[in-house]
Computed example of a mutant assay.
Amino acid sequence: MTTTSNSNLYSVMQARKSVRVFDPNFTIAKEEIEEMLKLATIAPSSSNLQSWRFLVIQDAAVKTELKGIANNQAQAEEASVVIAVLGDVDAYKKVEQIYTQNVAEGHMDDSIKDRTIANTHAVYPNVSAEVRMNIASFDAGLVSMQLMLIAKEKGYDTSTMGGFDKVKFAERFDLPENEFPIVLIALGKAAAPAYGSSRLPMDEIVRFI
């Protein structure tokens, strides 16, 4: 099988870089942010429980405060918006809503819905919060990458920030006990080019057996 190197998807993937300097005067409409998030949530998730939650931070004063929580990373303040990707350890509690909607949209029948709901209630409440946090973190990685590619395709730039005080963040934004912060995504227009980055050769990271 061969791939087409000039595919729009590949072009977007190659063009996406982690931007450090954003135009602080550039704004993005709420409706467009919602559209990008809706598209991003097409990403797969464990048992389709969609354990991601999002806190969209646009207010200039709040972003300035966020910069201090994020180890003084300038993009936390200068980006048009910072999207905090959160995990919900109780995401399984929405299983009836999710799978009822699956049936209503014609994706499955009632027998599959009922079996899946029963299995979910048998498993998820009985695993540790740490396991459910790991599941949510994995799902957050999938939705975050999808969001960044969508943003790039629309002409925007992004930067992920994992280095921030998660305890202070949860306290500042009064997160409920079942939610925890995973990553911050700065979103806006680059004011300076991003650095390129190298990748290890395939023979150092891939084994075929």
Rank of each mutant, 00 (worst) to 15 (best):
V21R: 10
F22M: 03
P24F: 03
N25M: 02
F26I: 01
F26R: 08
T27P: 05
I28K: 05
I28F: 09
A29H: 11
A29K: 14
A29W: 09
K30M: 12
K30P: 07
E31M: 10
E31D: 13
E32P: 04
E32H: 13
I33P: 06
I33G: 06
E34S: 11
E34R: 12
E34P: 07
E34M: 13
E34Y: 13
M36S: 00
M36D: 02
L37I: 14
L37Q: 02
L37F: 07
L37N: 01
K38A: 12
K38Q: 11
L39A: 13
A40R: 06
T41S: 11
T41L: 15
T41P: 02
A43T: 05
A43E: 04
P44S: 12
P44L: 08
S45P: 04
S46T: 15
N48S: 06
N48G: 03
L49K: 04
L49G: 06
Q50D: 01
Q50C: 03
R53W: 07
L55D: 05
L55I: 05
V56M: 04
I57H: 01
Q58C: 05
Q58M: 04
Q58R: 13
D59Q: 10
D59V: 05
D59T: 01
A60W: 09
A60R: 11
V62N: 10
K63P: 07
T64G: 12
E65K: 13
K67W: 04
K67F: 06
G68N: 15
I69D: 04
I69E: 03
A70S: 02
N71L: 14
N72F: 07
N72R: 08
Q73P: 09
A74L: 13
A74N: 15
A74R: 15
A74Y: 09
Q75Y: 10
A76R: 10
A76D: 06
E77G: 02
E78F: 12
E78T: 14
E78N: 15
A79G: 07
S80C: 07
S80K: 05
V82Y: 09
I83N: 11
L86M: 01
L86I: 08
G87K: 09
D88R: 00
D88H: 04
V89W: 01
V89C: 02
A91G: 07
A91P: 02
K93I: 02
K93D: 08
K93A: 08
K94N: 14
K94I: 06
V95K: 10
V95E: 11
V95M: 08
Q97Y: 10
Y99F: 15
Y99T: 06
Y99W: 05
T100W: 05
T100H: 11
Q101Y: 11
Q101F: 11
N102A: 15
V103G: 08
V103C: 05
V103T: 09
A104R: 15
A104N: 11
